[in-house]
Design a protein around this nucleic acid. Structure first.
Length: 786
RNA sequence: GCGGGAGUGGCGGAGCGGUCAAACGUGCUUGGCUAAGGACCAAGUGGCUUAGUGCCUUCGAAGGUUCGAAUCCUUCCUCCCGCACCA
């Protein structure tokens, strides 16, 4: 008997030769299914990849059989820190390391039987690809959506670069978990904030989960409120943002962020100036994390403002818990109503004024402030512009040149790509590595021809992944980022699959870029991913399977031992794709047995008598498996297929076996092909997804057969309890079911070799009143044996 | 604090108003039989029982709606995840 690896390799070869996974850029019923492309930074695929791709491949195969023109591409997110770090660790150039990893991963993918269209493969560190990163950057720049400015960047001391706000989790770097420090530095930013409202409202058009939508909604952080102007003694105003203008009567002091420039202005030339300078120095020493955990400190600034609602004179403070970057960097404090304000008031012995708030106060006070010119309605967002500059080597160079005469000069589009030089000292930690290559660094100004220097920062890898799904539509285009027609045909991605960890990073950037490209007329859609599945994690021994924890199981090993079909089916059966799963050898056993059974299906002989029964069951399975697959409930589809397989074994029919193989094909394609091919020499990959045939549904026969099964099993049970074999059985059935039993009685008699008599339950004549078993359930008769 | 999600046998997990709680898979028990890719087949696996299919209990807890609730509503408890001095 051929080993699974042999059979699987055979079919992988045949599929390749038959070109069954190629997609055309035209035709009716397109379907675009995509998994988040991998970083080839590590060596080989891990189990999470295998799960992710098993989901995607099953959908691709399912949709192909349904007659869709399916695009199922794959590529490599090959730029970025992990690749660079891995290369440094191994002491080889990232390019070499990446090439080796890609080779390994590709082979593993093929062995899993993933039905990618390899003609569309993309690799982001290829100049043919990153040229268009740079082009995209220039378009953003031209449209004033990319700008350079001095920022207080999130500096990761271990990664040796700034990172985006989206990459900071709990004050730590999402990749290496180091504490982030603030560093003042000139950076290139992208104005994601310009699209805040669209990014928010666009969510409604998607089919995403509530969880994911809420993650992005929180991140964008829209809040409606009022900017209130508090009059200073010198006639100037202090502006604060609040979402609760209705609490204004309870406001007893105002606080500025210490770094707010207005604070310094207020104390200039007074005895408080030194104190503030001292205080700023102190707070700056603390990391963001410490600043949150430490108690609320603050100082009086020696000034007072007027509360516009009651003309009370109230003091102005600077305090560490007020953020300079949000709202106006200043707040009105209502200690009676806000926990933080209360804490601060108690610490600094400030008055707490109790107030009563009516529902109508919000509008009343807001309108009054506006009328008196002391306020305006304002909408604030938490989202910040996207910092795309990285002081690292392995990324797409930012196509900008700095000229002493002309200033910031964008590289002309005709000069793209700005190639990433291979010869640099990428291990330097002092300057951006690109600055170590003088040939790259020193350049003529495209405008005046004078001496100039290139930008030496590279772009974040999230730029590459913010539009790669568009490049798949036209991966080899050398003249444009992609052909508009092709993109119009394929986009949006119908089903996207990937981890939830990209909720506020990659998924947000992709939406932003898509919206920008729509405005510029390159795409017709404004949401790139219609449906999105966030696959769950794989745990082993209760914790996440991960290299760093040393509890990994290698998918390739499992594939070698039991076959790709077994692994794929297992991964899809154990849990619903969007929930976490626990790796268990025991459950794997069940799948091994199941696949072994499937392999022998061609040897089953048709049982003519039960053909109408099993063919009817097949119709129900078609309906259920299709439904579950559409809903991405792969586990439920497999449950139905297991049940189908059990029934098929008892009552085989060629037709039902055919249906079964088609339905199982998206999960275990190789074994299904093998059996199908033995039965009729055809290729399942070219087959058609079965459609329910109502005519073959025979409810009566189904009920009869199931009734026989139950009666036979019940009688056997009773015999066992009695420890004897009976000769006669009396069945008491409730009247509506009577007919079913009468029809099948001969079968039961034959099976059990005993005489069976059936009565309606109300047939008192034969009913033994001493007998306790007088009650029959609707689908199960009361039984009396002799 | 805000937001999202989940609580069902030894375990993973179905069921999401009635026909049916525990499908399907594991695990375990018993009896056959001898291996298709970590064998296969049959029966059992909440409790009680005078072991003739009868009775009782149970879907995190308590209430409620209903003729009828694991399923709908309310409150509470527990757990997981995300965001967070965002004013």
């Amino acid at each position: 008997m051929a080993k699974p690896t042999v059979i699987e390799a055979k079919w992988q070869k045949k599929w390749k030769a038959a070109k069954v996974f190629k997609s055309k850029d035209s035709g009716r019923n397109k379907y675009y299914v995509l998994e988040m492309f991998p970083y080839p930074s590590g060596y080989g695929l891990h189990m999470g990849h295998a799960r992710n791709y098993s989901i995607g491949d099953s959908i691709a195969r399912f949709k192909r059989l349904q007659g869709f023109n399916v695009m199922y591409p794959i590529g490599w997110d090959s730029f970025g820190l992990p690749a660079e770090n891995a290369a440094i660790e191994k002491g080889i150039h990232p390019e070499k390391n990446i090439a080796r990893n890609i080779k390994v991963m590709k082979e593993q993918m093929n062995k899993l039987g993933l039905s990618y269209d390899w003609d569309r493969e993309i690799t982001t560190h290829n100049p043919e690809y990153y040229k268009w990163d740079q082009w995209l950057f220039l378009q953003l720049y031209k449209n004033n959506l990319a700008y350079r400015t001095k920022v207080n960047g999130n500096w990761c001391p271990s990664c040796n670069t700034t990172i985006a706000n989206e990459d900071v989790k709990n004050g730590r770097c999402w990749r290496c978990n180091s504490q982030i420090v603030q560093k003042e530095i000139e950076q290139w930013l992208v104005r994601t904030t310009n699209y805040a409202d669209e990014l928010l409202s666009g969510l409604e058009k998607t089919n995403w989960s509530n969880q994911l939508k809420s993650l992005q909604t929180n991140w964008i952080g829209k809040s409606k409120g009022v900017e209130i102007h508090f009059k200073l003694e010198d006639g100037e105003y202090l502006k604060v943002f609040t979402t609760r203008p209705d609490t204004l009567p309870g406001c007893t002091f105002v606080i500025l962020a210490p770094e707010n420039p207005q604070a310094m202005e207020l104390v200039k030339g007074t005895k408080y100036e030194k104190q503030l300078q001292e205080y700023i120095r102190e707070t700056e020493k603390l990391s963001e994390l410490d600043r949150i955990s430490k108690e609320k400190t603050g100082i009086f600034l020696g000034k007072y403002v007027i509360n516009p609602i009651n003309n009370q004179k109230i003091p102005v403070y600077a305090a560490n818990f007020v953020l300079v970057g949000y709202g106006t960097g200043a707040i009105m404090s209502v200690p009676a109503h806000d926990k933080r304000d209360e804490e601060f008031a108690k610490l600094h012995k400030l008055p707490i004024k109790q107030i009563e708030i009516k529902e109508s106060d919000f509008e009343k006070i807001t309108n009054e402030l506006i009328k008196n010119g002391l306020g305006k309605r304002v909408i604030n967002y938490k989202i910040r512009d996207w910092n795309i500059s990285r002081q690292r080597y392995w990324g797409s160079p930012i196509p900008i040149i700095y000229c002493a005469k002309c200033g910031v000069v964008p590289v002309p589009e005709k000069d793209l790509p700005v190639k990433l030089p291979l010869n640099v000292n990428f291990k330097t930690k002092v300057i951006s590595p690109l600055a170590t290559n003088k040939k790259f660094l020193n350049v003529k100004c495209p405008k005046c021809g004078g001496k100039a220097k290139r930008e030496t920062d590279t772009m974040t890898t999230f730029i590459d992944s913010a539009w790669y799904f568009l490049r798949y539509c036209d991966p080899k285009n050398r003249k444009q980022i992609f052909d508009k027609k092709k993109a119009a045909y394929w986009m949006p991605v119908d089903q996207y699959i990937g981890g939830i960890e990209h909720a506020v990073g990659h998924l947000l950037y992709s939406r932003f870029i898509t919206k920008f490209l729509k405005k510029k007329g390159y795409v017709k859609i404004d949401e790139p991913f219609t449906k999105l599945l966030n696959q769950g994690m794989i745990n082993l021994g209760g914790t996440k399977m991960s290299k760093s924890k040393g509890n990994v199981i290698d998918p390739t090993e499992i594939t070698k031992k039991y076959g790709a079909d077994t692994l794929r089916t297992y991964l899809l059966f154990v849990a619903q794709p969007d929930t976490d799963m626990e790796w268990s050898e025991k459950d794997l056993t069940g799948i091994i047995k199941f696949i072994a059974k499937v392999k022998t299906l061609d040897k089953l002989k048709e049982n003519k008598k039960y053909k109408s029964y099993i063919d009817s069951v097949a119709q129900r399975k078609i309906e259920l498996v299709t439904l579950h697959l559409e809903n991405l409930h792969h586990n439920k589809a497999l449950i139905e297929l297991f049940d189908f397989s059990n029934k098929l074994e008892r009552y085989p029919s060629k037709y039902a076996i055919c249906i079964f193989l088609h339905l199982l094909y998206p999960f275990a394609p190789h074994i299904c092909e093998e059996v199908w091919n033995k039965l009729n020499g055809k290729m399942l990959a070219k087959g058609k997804w079965p459609v329910k045939n109502q005519k073959l549904i025979n409810e009566k026969v189904e009920k009869e057969v199931e009734a026989v099964d139950k009666v036979v099993s019940d009688i056997r049970h009773i015999e066992k309890i009695m420890n004897k074999s009976a000769k006669k059985a009396y069945l008491y059935v409730i009247p509506p079911e009577l007919n079913n039993y009468n029809v099948v009685i001969k079968d039961i008699e034959k099976e059990l070799a005993m005489e069976i008599k059936v009565f309606a339950l109300n047939d008192k004549a034969k009913y033994d009143p001493e007998n306790k078993s007088g009650k029959a359930k609707p689908n199960r008769p009361a039984i009396y044996l002799e």
